[in-house]
Design a binder for these strands. Structure first.
Lengths: 349, 349
DNA sequence: TTTAAAATATGATAATTGTCATGAATTAAA
DNA sequence: TTTAATTCATGACAATTATCATATTTTAAA
C-alpha cells in the first residue's frame, strides 16, 4: 500500500481529503503545517507528498525546497494543492520543481488521478534505476520484447510458407509460438455455414500463436500465410521457460494481448454497425498498413482476403471497390489496388 | 549545450519559439507535427521535449504516449505547450505523465523557467539512477487468481453501482481494476453515429478494467452496471505491485486475457455473418448464462441492453423476440423473458 | 392512486446487402 | 503460345434489416 503525506492547515479539508485517500486505499499521514510536514516527510519517507502552499510556520514552497535538498526525499513525487489559482502562482510552484499543481476546489478524481499518475511515473524512473542498462552479465538476459525477438532469431526454428499455406488449423494441438520475420499472416475462423472471417492480421515482427500457457490446449483459429512468409517458431515449452524467468517480458506480453483485445473490439464495433462501404475502406487501409507500404503504393491482395477481413460477401466487396474506382478514390489495375484519396477512405460514410 | 525538441504545427510560433530558445543558448530541433516529432525524438534523443497538443497526423497526447513506451525516451522531460486551457485539458495532459503544462499565449520567461526547472529535476533523477536503492518486497502470499480475489476482498475499496450507473468512461484515466462481487457489468463502445455495442459482459467473480500495466493510459471503453452491482476496486498501481511479485498470477492473468480474446473473436464471427435471429438467440443464452440462472428461469433485461450485445437495432431485436414468442421458443411476461425451447435457441438458423 | 415518462410492440417503407447467374479478365498449367 | 482454371466484375433479384411512425404497456414519480 502506497504511503501519502498530506500537508494542509485547514482542518476540515485535511480530514476530508485524508478520508478520501484512505477510501482509495492509500496509507495516509497528515501534517497541519509546513514545518511539521517537512519533518514528518523526512521521518516516514512517504511515496508521495500532497501539499498546500499557504500555511503557517513554513509555506509549501519552503517544504518543497527543503525536500529537494535532502538526499532521501529529493525524488519523492510532490503535488501542490492550492487555492492560489493565478497563472504566476502555478508557474512559481512548478518552477520550484513540483510534479503537479492542483487548484482548489478540486474533484476527487482529479486528485486521485494526479497521484496515480505521479506514482506511475516514479515507478518508471525507479524501474530504470534498478535495471541499469549496463548490466551485461547474462547472455540470456531477456528484458523486453526486443530481446525476446532476438532470442527467437537465435534459438528458433525457421519455417517458410508460400502464399495460401496453412500454418496451423483450428483445433490442432498448439505447440509453437511464431514470430514473423517476413510476410503477412491472417488468423481466421469459419462460421457454421463455412464462411470465413479474418480475426487478426499479423505482419513482420509480430508475435502470434499463443494460446494458453497454463494448460494444454488447442488453437482456436486457423492461421494462413497471405503472402510468402518466413516465420520463426519456438516451442511453447521453451517459450514458457523464458517468460517464467523474465517477468518484464510477461508484462510486455500482457500488453500485447491487451492491444490485440482492443483491436478486435474495435473491429467488432465496426462489424456491428458500419456499412459495407466503410468496412471496405477500413480494410483497404488496414492492408496498406500491414503491407508496410506508403498508403499510396499499389497493394496486391485477393478480393477474397479483403472480403474475409471486412466480413462481407466477396461480390459485395468487389462491387464496392468498383464504386470507389468510379469515384476516383482508388485505382484498380488488374489485381492491384492503389489508394488515390486517402482522406476520403479514412472518413468514409 | 542542452538539446531541445520543439514540436509545434504553427510555423510562425514554431520559428519564433525556436529562435527564442536558441538565443537562450539551447540547441533546438523542431518538428511540424506529432508523427515527425515522435520519430525525431527517437532519433536525436533530446534532453527535453516541448510539444503542442492539437496537431495534424498525431496529436501531443499520442507523442507523449509513444515516448513513454520507448525505453530510451521514457524519462525524457516532456512539457505540453497548448492553447487548450481548460482545467480538464490540463488534467488530461498531466495525467498522461507530462512534466509540465504551459498554456498559450505564454511569456518567454515562463517557457524558459519551465525548461530549466525540468532539466534540473531530470539531472537529480539521473544522478540518483547511479545510486540504486535496494528494496525488499515483502512476500505477499498470492499464488493464483483465487488468492488475488481474496486480496481484493481484504484490501480493495468497495463500490456500489445502481442499474445504469457508469463505472468508468472511455477516455478517462484508468486508475482502478475491478472485481465483481455481485451483479453484472457491460463494457461498451460508441461508434461514430452514436450507436453502442457491448463488447464484454462481466459477471460475479470476473476481473475487468485492466488496460495497460506498463504505460499510463486511458480506458478504451465505457463500463456500466446492467443491474445493481457491488465491485471491489484496487488501484492499478497496487495491482501492478502484486503481479510484479507474483509471476504465477501474471500467467493466470494472461490466460484470462486470452480467454477474453477468444470470446470476443467468436462474437466477431457471429457479428459478421449471422442473422438477427441467430444473434438474438445467442444473446438471450449469453444473458441467461451471465445472470447465473438455470437457462429456463425468467431473465429480466432491457431490450436495449440485449440489442447492444447483439449488435442490432432495438426494434429489430424486439421484433425477433416477438417472432420467438409466436413460435413458442420463449415466453414474454412484461419485461421478463423465459426460455421454453433451449435446443431451438442453441441451433437457431 | 394518478400522471408523466420511458420502454415495448408493431406496421410501413426504403435502403442495404447477400445470392445466383453469367461474362470478362487474369493467372497458372500444359 | 494455347488452354483450362481461377478470379474478378456486374446485372438481376430477393431477403434482411434499419428507420420512422405510432400505439400500447410498463415503470417511475408526484
Amino acid at each position: 500500500m502506497k504511503h501519502i503525506l498530506l500537508i494542509e492547515d485547514d482542518v476540515i479539508l485535511r480530514e476530508n481529503t485524508a478520508e478520501l485517500l484512505e477510501l482509495s486505499n492509500y496509507k495516509v499521514s497528515t501534517a497541519p503545517n509546513g514545518k511539521i510536514g517537512l519533518s514528518t516527510a523526512l521521518k516516514i519517507q512517504p511515496d508521495i507528498i500532497v501539499c498546500d502552499i499557504m500555511m503557517p510556520e513554513l509555506d509549501g514552497y519552503g517544504v518543497l525546497q527543503g525536500l529537494s535538498t535532502t538526499e532521501n526525499t529529493k525524488h519523492t513525487p510532490f503535488i501542490f494543492l492550492s487555492a492560489k489559482t493565478e497563472r504566476k502562482d502555478v508557474r512559481k510552484g512548478m518552477d520550484l520543481g513540483a510534479d503537479d499543481y492542483i487548484t482548489k476546489p478540486f474533484e476527487e478524481d482529479e486528485l486521485i488521478s494526479a497521484i496515480e499518475s505521479r506514482l506511475a511515473k516514479a515507478a518508471i524512473l525507479k524501474d530504470n534505476r534498478e535495471n541499469p542498462a549496463t548490466e551485461v552479465e547474462d547472455d540470456l538476459a531477456i528484458r523486453n520484447l526486443n530481446d525476446l525477438k532476438n532470442f527467437f532469431d537465435d534459438n528458433g526454428k525457421t519455417f517458410t510458407f508460400k502464399q495460401g499455406d496453412i500454418i496451423y488449423r483450428e483445433g490442432e494441438h498448439s505447440n509453437y509460438i511464431y514470430l514473423i520475420e517476413k510476410g503477412l499472416v491472417k488468423c481466421h475462423k469459419l462460421d457454421t455455414h463455412g464462411k470465413d472471417l479474418t480475426t487478426a492480421l499479423h505482419k513482420e515482427d509480430d508475435l502470434f500463436g499463443y494460446t494458453s500457457f497454463t494448460e494444454n490446449t488447442t488453437y482456436k483459429e486457423t492461421a494462413a500465410a497471405i503472402k510468402e512468409s518466413v516465420l520463426i517458431g519456438i516451442s511453447k515449452h521453451e517459450f514458457m521457460d523464458i517468460i517464467s524467468s523474465n517477468h518484464k517480458v510477461t508484462l510486455d506480453l500482457i500488453q500485447l494481448l491487451n492491444d490485440d483485445l482492443v483491436n478486435v473490439k474495435d473491429q467488432l464495433l465496426e462489424m456491428a454497425y458500419s456499412s459495407v462501404r466503410r468496412r471496405t475502406a477500413t480494410t483497404i487501409l488496414k492492408f496498406a498498413d500491414k503491407l508496410g507500404n506508403k498508403p499510396t503504393d499499389f497493394i496486391r491482395i485477393s478480393r477474397n482476403d479483403l472480403a474475409s477481413v471486412a466480413g462481407v460477401a466477396t461480390e459485395s466487396l468487389i462491387r464496392t471497390l468498383s464504386r470507389f474506382k468510379d469515384q476516383g478514390i482508388i485505382e484498380i489495375e488488374g489485381r492491384n489496388i492503389k489508394v488515390l484519396d486517402l482522406q476520403q477512405l479514412k472518413n468514409m460514410e
